[in-house]
Design a protein around this nucleic acid. Structure first.
Lengths: 220, 220
DNA sequence: TTCTAAATGATAGTATTACTATTATATTTG
DNA sequence: CAAATATAATAGTAATACTATCATTTAGAA
């Protein structure tokens, strides 16, 4: 089991960056630069320069930086889904699975050496800092049809089914897990930057225990 | 009680737009254009044109569109705080107050005729669609010091105190209400654009009942 | 091996954005 | 009425977000 392929909708790129050396370099350097500069200051020109290629080459893989961000974030959800599936194998109750899922959402990721061009940890930081920007746009409806948000929706569905195993009468599973997933990101951001919006001290444990408490109580 | 003044930090403008005719026109038209175009397509040039003034004039009031958005969103939180305080007068239990607060977060606002240049309903839509963009930037720490997020933090504090009245041992009041406030916004957005991320059908009632349920259960 | 197609590099160019600066003309205030 | 202030009109700059063209390199098929 050496090969691992995270697949994202082919509407999320012009040319599949996983399939070429240059494409993988673009992904790798984009993750680094998005982390360092933030989405607003990130440009394709800077990527081209940093990989000693050109702006035009980057534009052959992605229409614009918005599409690139959407690609990366979908890749992240796809990868998290794989991780969850792996962890769930040895867990027997839906509650244990939910607890594990929340941990995976919050705890830092270790590098997967099968995919050396993606730094999962940096990618997680990008998700924390940039995630809502991919859907909070005027183009959301069209991009939704093109599958820009499938990764997120699938995770949300998976967790919803677990909640219904615990309480089949629970009325708000999708709303709850959309909320939990967003809170997992925003609480990480708040602890770091706006600590008055969180009770968690630095470190992920407090966030996990808040989210777990809220999830379990709400389902019941 | 005819005068009503929502005050925001003076770091959120160059020149106070509430104090001049032109300033109020800028606010009024910016709210309209932000709604129509979305933050990304919104520019000061378009505002200047639409009010038959100039781009340069708009720049005399706000450093850039980011500051303008932060101003508007802080104004919204300030105004919501006033609304909550008014409603709380006739409510006696903290639980009733929390229920009311959640309703105020979600139900559409009626126009306050004391402030004719601010369309509260449009402003609420801007908050739903653009809110996280004001803090998800590399400049967040500096802007936090300048009071860019005070409005949000104060609402969060107020609601936290109510939760502690219900259960003084509750460990996560700030995290909970940061989460509830964000979910109030994002669930409104999801119902409209990404319905698979919500169980609420169109209309705000389902969102309110989800958020209320989650809040009450989590506090206990 | 050679031919062909595809990928990349190098370069140029355009429209728009996000400002800054200057000067002239109103308008307000003391 | 003078002085200060606000606004309008205009110009200009650097960066961004692309698009286009053509030459060169590389890879794959015949």
């Amino acid at each position: 089991m050496n090969a691992l392929n995270i697949t994202v909708s082919d509407k999320l790129y012009i040319k599949n960056p996983d399939e070429t050396e240059l494409g993988r370099k673009i992904l790798s350097k984009s993750i680094e630069l998005l982390n360092d500069l933030g989405y607003e200051h990130f440009t394709f020109k800077k990527v081209g320069l940093a990989i000693e290629s050109t702006e035009a080459s980057v534009y052959r893989y992605f229409q614009n930086k918005h599409q690139l961000l959407a690609f990366l974030i979908n890749w992240y959800w796809g990868w998290l889904e794989v991780k969850m599936a792996n962890e769930f194998i040895v867990l027997n109750t839906p509650e244990d699975k939910l607890r594990k899922a929340i941990e995976l959402l919050v705890y830092p990721m270790d590098q997967d050496e099968r995919i050396p061009h993606i730094n999962e940890n940096q990618l997680q930081h990008i998700v924390v800092s940039e995630y809502p920007k991919i859907y909070l746009t005027k183009e959301v409806d069209q991009e939704n049809q093109e599958g820009y948000f499938l990764g997120y929706k699938r995770i949300c569905d998976t967790l919803s089914l677990l909640a219904l195993q615990i309480n089949p009468d629970f009325k708000h599973p999708h709303s709850l897990f959309a909320t939990v997933i967003e809170a997992a990101q925003s609480q990480q951001f708040f602890v770091e930057h706006l600590p008055r919006l969180s009770d968690a001290k630095k470190g992920q444990k407090d966030i996990v225990s808040f989210l777990t408490h809220m999830t379990i109580k709400t389902i019941q």
